[in-house]
């Protein structure tokens, strides 16, 4: 990677052209919106609300299905000029193998397994990443279905994220991405006497979740040997450096693309470079971790 910033999954959507735009905006790698075997329309609007640094979404993982997504991925892989990460998910454990092997046909640089979206629940009523058994099972199924490097994306909404991280490492993950959205949460409109999101609840992202992301990455990176991508609330170079100092090898950026546009990656990288120089680091690997 030319720099440590990555476009987070679900940001700017499913189209290859938008992934290319994020790459032009300075991202060192780009992640596609999570896709499933079959198309999904997602939840009805309102699906996203935003207020004072807090974003809450219940898009409901709308995506055109893997067959169509392969075309978009190929387009991005051809022209983005940076590694493309294909994010996949399933709402039944059995489907993780098929969606992983189908996505791999596009030859993305990596596959990211999204087992942590709060808007999709497994039969047991929780994201797969909420139990180390289902997290490990999903990882094994994906692992045995692709030769590509496999990232597993975890949910922060668990009492012990370290045990989940160890379980997916043992199940064959090559890297971990942490974190997906926090919560889920709710927002109420007084006059309508209703939750604003049609799904009632949504995953929280943006700068307010950064302390949680830092803590998760700090704990995970000490417990596993595989690299961790730190995602959650990163808006500037200082946020990125803090995340790297907690043990992340790269940083994912999502909600800041809303507030600062796809050029946010160049800005973060510039700020990070300046800060690193000030601290006497010439490369990411020289960064000293926090105690």
């Amino acid at each position: 990677m030319r720099n440590p910033t990555i476009l987070a999954s679900g940001i700017l959507g499913v189209s290859g052209d938008m992934l290319i735009r994020a790459a032009h905006g300075g991202a060192g790698a780009v992640t596609s919106k999570s896709c499933s075997l079959e198309p999904r329309v997602g939840h009805p609007n309102p699906t996203v609300i935003e207020s004072e640094g807090l974003m809450m979404n219940a898009i409901g993982l709308s995506n055109p299905g893997v067959d169509e997504e392969i075309r978009e991925l190929r387009r991005a892989i051809k022209d983005a000029g940076v590694p493309v990460i294909a994010s996949v998910f399933a709402d039944r454990l059995e489907e993780f193998a098929a969606v992983t092997s189908r996505s791999s046909e596009a030859w993305p640089h990596l596959i990211e397994l999204n087992i942590s979206c709060p808007n999709v629940e497994s039969k047991i009523g929780m994201p797969f990443s909420c139990s180390f058994e289902t997290a490990a099972k999903a990882t094994q199924l994906a692992r045995s279905s692709t030769k590509l490097p496999l990232i597993v994306k975890l949910s922060p909404n668990v009492p012990d994220i370290v045990s989940i991280a160890r379980a997916v490492e043992d199940a064959g993950a090559d890297a971990i991405c942490a974190i997906n959205t926090v919560g889920p949460g709710m927002a109420i409109d007084i006059q309508a006497r209703r939750p604003i999101l049609s799904n009632k609840t949504g995953g929280i992202s943006g700068k307010l979740i950064r302390p949680i992301a830092l803590r998760c990455v700090y704990q995970i990176s000490r417990a596993v040997k595989i690299p961790v991508i730190g995602t959650g609330g990163i808006e500037n170079g200082k946020d990125a450096l803090e995340m790297l100092m907690c043990g992340a090898r790269a940083v994912g950026v999502g909600t800041a693309v809303y507030s600062q546009g796809p050029e946010v990656f160049s800005k973060i990288n510039q700020e990070l470079e300046n800060l690193m120089k000030k601290q006497g680091y010439s490369k990411i690997s020289e960064i000293k971790l926090v105690d």
Binding site: L12, G13, V14, S62, G254, V257, G261
Partner: peptide, 20 residues
């Protein structure tokens, strides 16, 4: 359009976002 504010990418057209 879904979010209307340039994050979800639903309204993408060749790398432009119709909403933003």
């Amino acid at each position: 359009m879904k979010c209307g504010i340039g994050i979800c990418g639903s309204c993408a057209i060749n790398g432009f976002l119709a909403c933003k």
